[in-house]
């Protein structure tokens, strides 16, 4: 039933909820603004004279173009990653600034995470709604499909899809094309992983709502099934779907990094949290900060998403039992 949701939601969100929402908002802002804050290094005779840790330039160093090898050397000598030079959290082995890379990588990570979950929510939501509301053969087919898809451990399924759809062959001619397919391939994989989960939740939630009086009433008034699904059932199913979708975004952020760690992530030439972690993990002894700095971003993000998801679920459960 329509409720004055906004005020109730605001009250229930609490201070913690607002901090979490603010963090997610901040990340979105960062992913929009960060590319504008990077400096093109100015070089003279092949030497960097401005940017990339020379003390000049903008706050962020483009990790793909800047290499402050002096800093890397210094870092290796002192064994100190943090606080050296202008690099807040140290540099990687080719002189890239880890903090900058993390900030800049936010964009690709978020694009992958949000677009895949948005697509999965659309797809899974539609399938679950139709499946739960209409029942019968359609339900059998969709539920069966969800069952089979869920029968794959998530990372294995993602790996299978990326490895077939966007495997990068050795042949340089084929490789270029495959590299361009990599990010869409990852998104596709994550959509396939998330769709059955979101679909199942939507289906279950639809089943509980489809039997309610107001749905019956709409039916009795002769409303068309599509109209009932969209106007009566969907608005009530959305909270459940949303709460799980938030958790799923967290899962997807982790899976993105995981794919990088097994060599099936965002390809060279692009930066994401996963690529930064993966290149640090390759030499954990010398570049642990390269693993842990983006990991902190991952952890904070998942914390925020879980918190918001939990809050939404609690709120949703209250509504559920109050009826």
């Amino acid at each position: 039933m329509p409720e004055p949701a906004s005020s109730a939601a605001r009250r229930k969100l609490g201070i913690g909820g607002w901090i979490c929402a603010a963090w997610i908002g901040f990340l979105v802002l960062v992913s929009l603004v960060a590319p504008m804050l990077t400096a093109e290094p100015v070089t003279e005779n092949g030497r960097v004279v401005e940017g990339c840790g020379t003390g000049e330039g903008l706050p962020l160093y483009d990790p793909l173009k800047c290499s402050d090898l002096d800093a890397t050397r210094e870092q290796r000598r002192t064994g100190q990653a943090v606080g050296e030079f202008k690099h807040l959290t140290g540099v990687d082995k080719s002189g890239g600034d880890v903090f900058s890379a993390t900030v800049i990588g936010t964009r690709t990570t978020l694009i992958i995470a949000f677009s895949s979950i948005a697509l999965a929510a659309l797809l899974g939501g539609a399938m679950g709604l139709v499946s739960g509301y209409l029942g019968g053969k359609i339900d059998m087919i969709f539920s069966g499909l969800f069952d089979v898809m869920i029968a794959f451990p998530p990372l294995i399924l993602a790996l299978l899809i990326v490895n077939t759809y966007a495997a990068i062959p050795e042949d340089p001619k084929l490789a270029e094309e495959a590299i361009n397919r990599r990010v869409p391939g990852i998104i596709l994989a994550l959509v396939v992983v998330a769709t059955p989960i979101l679909g199942r939740i939507t289906r279950a939630s639809t089943l509980t709502w489809a039997g309610r009086e107001f749905v019956m009433a709409a039916k009795a008034l002769g409303a068309r099934p599509l109209r009932i699904m969209l106007r009566e059932v969907l608005p009530n199913v959305v909270p459940a779907l949303m709460s799980i979708a938030l958790l799923a975004v967290g899962v997807v952020v982790v899976t993105e990094s995981s794919l990088s760690l097994i060599g099936l992530g965002v390809p060279d030439g692009d930066t994401s949290w996963g690529t930064v972690i993966a290149s640090g993990a390759a030499d954990l002894r010398r570049y642990p900060h390269q693993v842990f700095v983006p990991s902190i971003a991952v952890i904070l993000t998942i914390c925020a998403l879980n918190f918001l998801g939990d809050a939404l679920r609690r709120k949703f459960d209250v509504r559920e039992s109050a009826l």
Binding site: G250, V254, S257, S258, L261, I277, A281, L284, P288, V291, F292, S295, V298, I299, I302, C303, N306, F307
Partner: peptide, 14 residues
């Protein structure tokens, strides 16, 4: 809650 927010690979590297 915190444990659920830390990915397994981060724990592994730590």
């Amino acid at each position: 809650f915190l444990a659920l927010s830390v990915p397994g690979f981060v724990v592994a590297y730590l």
